[in-house]
Structures are given as structure tokens and as C-alpha cells.
Design a protein around this nucleic acid. Structure first.
Lengths: 192, 192
DNA sequence: TGGGAACTATCTACCGGAAGATAGCTAAGC
DNA sequence: GCTTAGCTATCTTCCGGTAGATAGTTCCCA
């Protein structure tokens, strides 16, 4: 893939992470890359083509990133929690699939399909890694929602707070949850 | 509040649930209500004013709905799970705060503030109902994320699958998780 | 090996439409 | 007679997308 084409996708991805499909225009992308807006159309005829390509690339990147993490640390939940965390929170940019999924009902079919494929890929991988379908859906939802809540609050630490207890809980062979509760006890004092 | 004003908010809310801020225009709202687009400006000078008002009303409605549910059933997690579930999934319309939160970085400050207040209200109430800050964040994230995942998949049942195990798990006085696993066992067979 | 066809990547210039917003008018009604 | 609530008409700006020109490159083949 040419430098320019991937630069266009980089710029679109960056802006999509902040504002979704409505968060960027051809003119903005063109300015980011340093070309004219009509040249963006040359590489991606329509906006939906561009969005779909960005999501597809993100899905592939996520899949590979998970595989790499699992080589070092076999715990699937930790791998997924860290993968979604990414550089996102520090820069106010979250998983673009999550942003688009929130408004999935208003997406063009080809983009919606790509978003759907991303989430199905996540679930399939989690299940292949040993989780039950129920646990996989719960883990993916918690991670996704943690991104949303942290984004809304403008507080990256909320992501960690939301996903902290996922590890000892959702793993296929977890034994008992009561024993982990002690980790959370000091937090309660902060509030009450 | 006049009939028209609340009708405008109803229409805006409905469309915001599907596509966020970019999911509606003054002209569409006007057509929905049966007035002219300039008349919408009379009630809400700017689009951000309208969005902020809708979010504020939604937050109040959610808060009241939770209080009512708790009167009948004291379990906070069940109350919140059902409240977010709402009519949303059957009609492809989810909590508008969740939709806006996904693109919170691109929101006007006054709208972003209102969305932030909604999520803080949720957390505060969950904590007041007995959950630790960590559990509250986790529960809210899972519910929020379940909405997103179900929306992306176009599969309402994913919401229930994601939140099913929240109840016996996240309650402040839960004992042990291993004992609940049996509920999920048949599901595992479906896949393996 | 030279020359033309075809392709690539970008440009300039423009289009129709839709967006949010404003100005200023008109009635009704307390 | 001020307030409420709506209207008509219009503005500017920006959007996604198209048309057509122009260099530079690749590649075939006589």
C-alpha cells in the first residue's frame, strides 16, 4: 500500500477515534496528509469506503496484537484488556470500532458490516481462548463500556477501575470471587 | 413545558439514540414535529442547547426510573440492568448518553459536561446503593458496553448474555462465583 | 531499442445540496 | 402592550462528490 494511502487511513483513523464518522471530512483528511480533497477520493471513492477500510485494518491489527500478547502472557482477559487500553486513553482516542458501534444504526450497510465483523472477531477469539460465550460477551462488553465511561468522564483511570476485577473473575477456571474482594476494600474508604 | 417543546425533545432524543449528534438536523426534527426548522431555533437557539437539554432530561428520567425500580426490587444491579435495557434494544435505540459518550471528545463543552454528569450520577447512585467504587464502575461499564456490543451485532440477546452474570457477581455481599457457574455450563456446550 | 498505449497519482475547478443560524414579520392572549 | 410562539425568507458555510487536465511511470511489442 502506498505511503499516501496509508497516511490517509492514519488521519481518518485518528479523527474517527475522536468523533466517529461525522468527526472528519475529506477536506480535513486532505489537509492532514498534505494533499487535495479530490485526491482522497482517488484512493477512497466514498467516505464509507474509507471508513470501512479503516475499520478492517483496525480489526486485523487488533487480531495480530492479541496473538502477540498471548505469546508472552497466556491470560486472554489480560491480553484483551491491555489491547483495548492501548495508547487510546492517554490521548483521548479510543477504539474506532467502539465509537462507530455506538451509532451503528445510522451507518451505511458496508460500514456497519465491518464493525459487526470486528466485534464478532473479538468474541470468536475470546471463545477460542477458552471463555464461554457468556463470559466472552461479558468481558468484551465491560472492556468496551470501560472505554466509553472513561471517555465520558475524561478520566482514564476509570478504565482500569472498571476492568481491574475482570481478571480473577471471568477466566474460565476461576474458583471463587469472594477471596479477591480484599483488593477492593481500601477503595471503599475513599468514598464513604 | 409546552407540548411543542417536549415534542421537539422527543424527536431529537429518538434520532440521537440512533445516530448521536450527527444523527439529526433541525430540518428533520421540524418535519417530525410538524413545524418549521426556524421554529426549532426559537425553543433551542443552537443544536448544542437542544442536545444538552435532551441529555439532562434523560438523566433525570433515569434517576427517577431507578428509584422506582428499587422500591419494588432492592437489588441495585438488577434495577440498573433493566433500566438501561429499556425499550432500546427492541427498537434499535440505545441510551443517548452512551451514544454521545462514544464521541465525547468532539462534543461542545456544554454537551460534554451534561454527558459527564449523567455518568457521574450513575456511579454515585450505584455507590450509594452499596457498591464499592470499583464495582460501580465495572457494573456501569458492562451495562454500557453491552448496549454497544448488542448494537454493533444487531443482536439484542447479546445484552442479556453480557449482563446475565452481573447479578450474582457484582453485588456487594456476593459470596463465591464458582457456584453460579452451573448456569452457564450448557452454553459452553453450544460452541465446543 | 524506441515509441505509443495505458495506468497512477495528483491537481484545479466546480456542482448541487444541506447544514446551522439569523432577521424580521404576524397573530394570539393574558 | 409586552410575551409567547410561530412563520417566511434568506444567509453563509461546508459537505461529499465529479469532471477533466496534467505530469510521471510502466509496459508491451515491432
Amino acid at each position: 500500500m502506498s505511503d499516501v494511502k496509508s497516511a490517509i487511513m492514519d488521519a481518518a483513523e485518528r479523527r474517527m477515534q475522536r468523533g466517529g464518522l461525522g468527526g472528519f471530512s475529506f477536506r480535513e483528511i486532505a489537509a492532514d496528509v498534505g494533499i487535495k480533497s479530490s485526491s482522497v477520493h482517488y484512493h477512497f471513492p466514498t467516505k464509507d469506503d474509507l471508513a470501512a477500510a479503516v475499520i478492517r485494518r483496525w480489526a486485523e491489527g487488533t487480531s495480530k496484537s492479541i496473538d502477540q500478547r498471548l505469546e508472552k502472557d497466556p491470560d486472554p482477559v489480560r491480553a484483551w484488556t491491555n489491547a483495548f487500553r492501548g495508547t487510546a486513553l492517554s490521548e483521548g482516542r479510543i477504539c474506532p470500532c467502539t465509537v462507530l458501534a455506538a451509532a451503528a444504526q445510522d451507518l451505511a450497510p458496508e460500514v456497519a458490516r465491518e464493525v459487526q465483523r470486528f466485534f464478532r472477531m473479538c468474541l470468536d477469539k475470546l471463545i477460542a481462548e477458552g471463555l464461554s460465550p457468556g463470559s466472552a460477551t461479558e468481558v468484551l462488553s465491560t472492556i468496551t463500556g470501560a472505554l466509553i465511561v472513561a471517555n465520558a468522564l475524561g478520566d482514564a483511570s476509570a478504565y482500569d477501575r472498571a476492568t481491574r476485577d475482570l481478571l480473577p473473575v471471568a477466566r474460565p477456571k476461576s474458583e471463587c470471587r469472594g477471596s479477591v474482594k480484599r483488593v477492593r476494600a481500601p477503595e471503599v474508604r475513599k468514598r464513604s
